[in-house]
Design a protein around this nucleic acid. Structure first.
Length: 824
RNA sequence: GCGGGCGUGGCGGAACUGGCAGACGCGACGGACUUAGGAUCCGUUGGGUUUCCCGUGGAGGUUCAAAUCCUCUCGCCCGCACCA
């Protein structure tokens, strides 16, 4: 009899999805304005590099963001959810060299394609705020920010040994070198002595470290990574004296309590003082040889823990200021020039590295710290004693414990001028010059008369010239572009040259989240009021690969702009969600492995709603996700079931009041689901369990199809179902919403509220245990008392047989849940 | 070596403050409808010697009760790594 009624339409996603995408766009459904009547919510996903096509990682990233944005909107927030393009960068230039396409054309075409794909996914962006970092209207302000840094003395030029990627033909920041290789292309990075532009990120090292504490909404992992990268360590710079030249040799130590145990000094092979110490001595030849050998080694092998310590004696000596002892000066591979002072004191008894070195070269081992119990003897030591302890052989400091001694000796040295307390960081200044064309030109002019001259603000942007020659060697075409190169000095008006290097693209992405608050402003990078309304970003979502790079640069940038009075927040991103990777067959999708699943195909075959639903259902967002074609089909089937369920039940929305008990059951299911889905999204971003709860609801409603349910209750159930599903599957829910008879978009509706009363159970299931083991279950009224539970449990058939002839020691009850009878 | 995370059916994963282990989905098996089923619907599905016993990487412990807490241990992933 139902059969004829069951005639329903087919879930035709291929018609539905474009239909709604078009309507949303026409109606500007997701356009955002400042509105003081609503709490604001800034939901941001890391903008992509326009490589040409979306990959599954993007789909995951933007699906997560869209659920959050749509959910928050329905919860009454004024949500800013923008998208843009991190559009400068090398691939565009490589395409130019390889295929003869201009980087601009290549980039804009890719953007057009990816924008189309994002729209096909139905992500709720305010497209009127779209930005691209390669647009002069954007990079004008990137250059403006460079000038701000320059004015504040935070941008400077310096000659130093920098990382050079031969394949990318440009220098790189330290953060972009991973295991001695280029983070982008994997080529081995070498060192070049070049004059380059840097940002003084080290000036903010302490605050960048300290303010991590202000970020409880960030994953611990990311904070730890930044902490490691900043690498703060407190200690003392001790001034040794070179016996031969009388010059000061500062060394950095975190253990001044071991200063009396110094038996030698080690300098980095490249230390500038080495040459003068060995000049004209019999040691000169060997030292030079060693230096040459070190030069040839790449940094990874040179600094690996596995590499054996190696060094040579310079023939020179240094004087230890605290006891005037004369100690030999060595150079060795394990001392790095660019950390601390490039020289260290060797305390073999209390430092494992020094111990190994001293053993190898027969240098004396002198114990100056003893453990709380017992006494160390240098002859019998097999490793260094690096823990704290009690000082010995340390003159007036004997008997102190390490903690006291560290303070006392540091103060003593400061008093006597033997040294001073210092803080050292592993963090280096950010090298931002790139010898590439496709980037924002550094707004600097070099004049023979006036020197380095910043381009005046009113002359911004320094435009990238369009007509340039790309040469296959990969050198920047700007070097040969006369019309760009030649200019006049803004100060003296004489002939001058432009800086030909462009800026690291991480500079462009360090402020884009400001620009979204006021993307078309031509007078300023942003309007302060608008920025004040929207910033900080409430929820930032992206891959963990930017844990240090982009996320630390942006934090630095934000602090500078705050100090410049442009921004009011200490930290730009309040909450950070780092999504897991999308895997196929247990490995990251990659061309070389041939395990790529393209979003295009999935959308074509199943539609965007299915793609989104699967990617959110398969795994919680921060975990890796294993792609499964069958899983996708399962999600598609679920959406078909939703379609059928709604279509079948639509005609019954006018049904008269029916069985009150059944109504109550249906309403209980609906409201329990509302509660669960709300909590899962709001508190934990556990979209997978939220979706499974919706699936359970659909299964449940299906089972009520044959039963008498009031029309009112059916209507409430269907409405709730669609509202709960709307953030995940925006198209099908919108279509069904319309079919329910609503004119106004489901995405402008309020999120449903769980009704406590409707949720309340009539009956509860009581679990009965004997000695902690499950022995039975009982249905009891919801207002059952613990006493009643206990009584019923003790009368339970199964229980009686089990406790017969035994002693009931104790009965434990958990209200409305469980009775545990303990017998002996 | 240090730091962070993880380990649960055939698979992806649930189980929030200790209280029914395995929700939901996939797969598999059985059935219905059917010319057909790779569509759809219904049912079953941790293992076993099946009134019961065993099961959350392993071994102990705390507890009436442990995937969850503690100790040790094994394995995997990620980050840092001669940083003085």
């Amino acid at each position: 009899m139902r059969k004829e009624v069951n005639f329903v339409s087919h879930y035709d996603f291929k018609t539905i999805e474009p239909k709604w995408q078009k309507r949303w766009e026409e109606q500007k459904l997701y356009k955002t304005y400042e509105d003081d009547k609503k709490p604001k919510y800034y939901c941001l996903e890391m903008f992509p590099y326009p490589s040409g096509k979306l990959h599954m990682g993007h789909v995951r990233n933007y699906s997560i963001g869209d659920v959050i944005a749509r959910f928050k909107r329905m919860r009454g927030y004024n949500v800013l959810h923008p998208m843009g393009w991190d559009a400068f960068g090398l691939p565009a230039e490589n395409a130019a060299i390889k295929h003869g396409i201009h980087p601009a054309k290549w980039t804009w075409e890719n953007i057009a394609n990816m924008r189309k794909q994002l729209k096909q996914l139905g992500i709720s962006y305010d497209w009127d705020r779209e930005i691209a970092t390669c647009h002069p209207g954007y990079y004008k302000w990137t250059q403006w920010f460079f000038l701000k840094l320059y004015e504040r003395g935070l941008a400077y030029r310096k000659k130093s040994f920098v990382n050079w990627c031969p394949s990318c033909a440009t220098v790189l920041a330290n953060e972009q070198v991973v295991d001695g290789r280029c983070e982008r292309c994997g080529a081995e990075v070498s060192k070049k002595n070049l004059e380059q532009w840097f940002f003084k990120i080290t000036e903010y090292a302490d605050e960048l470290l300290e303010d991590l504490k202000k970020l409880p909404g960030w994953p611990e992992k990311v904070k730890v990574m930044q902490e490691n990268w900043i690498g703060r360590s407190e200690g003392v710079e001790v001034y040794f004296t070179a016996e031969k030249t009388g010059k000061r040799i500062p060394v950095f130590t975190t253990r001044p309590d071991t200063i009396f145990g110094v038996s030698y000094l080690v300098m980095a092979p490249e230390h500038p003082m080495v040459d003068e110490l060995v000049a004209g001595t019999p040691h000169e030849k060997k030292v030079k040889e060693f230096q040459r050998k070190m030069e040839k080694l790449n940094e990874i092998t040179r600094t690996s823990t596995e590499t054996e310590k190696e060094g040579v004696f310079t023939g020179a000596y240094a004087i230890n200021p605290v006891n005037n002892e004369k100690v030999p000066i060595w150079i060795a591979n394990y001392v790095l020039l660019d950390y601390g002072t490039g020289a260290v004191m060797g305390v073999p008894a209390h430092d494992q590295r020094d111990f190994e070195f001293a053993k190898k070269y027969g240098l004396p081992i002198k114990v100056v710290i003893n453990p709380q119990q017992g006494e160390l003897r240098s002859e019998s030591m097999t490793q260094a004693y690096v823990e704290e302890g009690i000082l010995v052989n340390s003159g007036m400091f004997d008997g102190m414990n390490s903690k006291e001694a560290i303070k006392a000796i540091a103060s003593f040295m400061e008093e006597k001028g033997f040294g001073k307390r210092t803080v050292n960081y592993k963090l280096r200044d950010w090298l931002i010059s790139r010898q590439r064309y496709w980037g924002a030109p550094i707004p600097i002019i070099y004049c023979d008369k006036c020197g380095i001259v910043p381009v005046p603000e009113d002359q911004l942007p320094v435009m990238l010239p369009h007509n340039v020659e790309f040469n296959p060697k990969g050198t920047s075409p700007l070097l040969e572009c006369e019309e760009f190169l030649n200019t006049t000095c803004p100060e003296c008006g004489g002939p001058a040259r432009r800086e030909t290097d462009t800026m690291d693209t991480f500079m462009c992405s360090s402020w884009y989240f400001y620009r979204f608050t006021d993307p078309r402003n031509e007078e300023k990078p942003f309007d302060e009021e608008k920025l004040r309304y929207w910033m900080p970003v409430d929820q930032y979502i992206g891959g963990v690969e930017h844990a240090i790079l982009h996320l630390m640069y942006s934090r630095f940038f934000n602090k500078v702009m705050r100090d410049a009075g442009l921004v009011h927040v200490d930290e730009p991103f309040t909450n950070l969600l780092t999504q897991g990777m999308v895997l196929k067959d247990g490995a990251k999708m990659s061309k070389s492995l041939g395990n790529i699943v393209s979003p295009e195909e999935i959308i074509e075959k199943y539609g965007a709603d299915t793609a989104r639903l699967f990617i959110l259902f398969a795994s919680p967002p921060e975990k890796d996700l294993e792609w499964s074609d069958q899983g996708v089909e399962g999600c598609h089937r679920f959406l078909q079931r939703v379609w059928r369920l709604v279509e079948e039940l639509l005609p019954r929305m006018q049904d008269p009041a029916a069985d009150e008990k059944v109504d109550r059951e249906v309403r209980r299911l609906v409201h329990k689901t509302i509660k669960k889905v709300t909590d899962d999204i709001e508190e934990r971003f556990n979209f997978n369990t939220a979706i499974s709860a919706i699936m359970e609801m659909v299964n449940g409603l299906n089972s009520y199809k044959e039963r008498p349910v009031s029309g009112k209750v059916i209507k409430e159930a269907l409405e709730s179902l669609l509202l709960l599903l709307a953030p995940f599957a925006p198209h099908i829910t919108e279509e069904l919403w319309e079919r329910m008879g609503y004119q106004k978009s489901i995405h402008l509706m309020s999120w449903p509220e769980a009704d406590r009363e409707a949720m309340a159970d009539d009956e509860v299931e009581i679990v009965i245990q004997v000695n902690g083991k499950l022995r039975g279950k009982l249905m009891m009224p919801a207002d059952v008392t613990e006493e009643e539970m206990k009584e019923a449990a003790l009368k339970h058939e199964k229980v009686l047989s089990l406790i017969e002839g035994k002693n009931v020691v104790k009965v434990i009850t958990v209200p409305k849940k469980l009775v545990n009878i303990v017998v002996k």
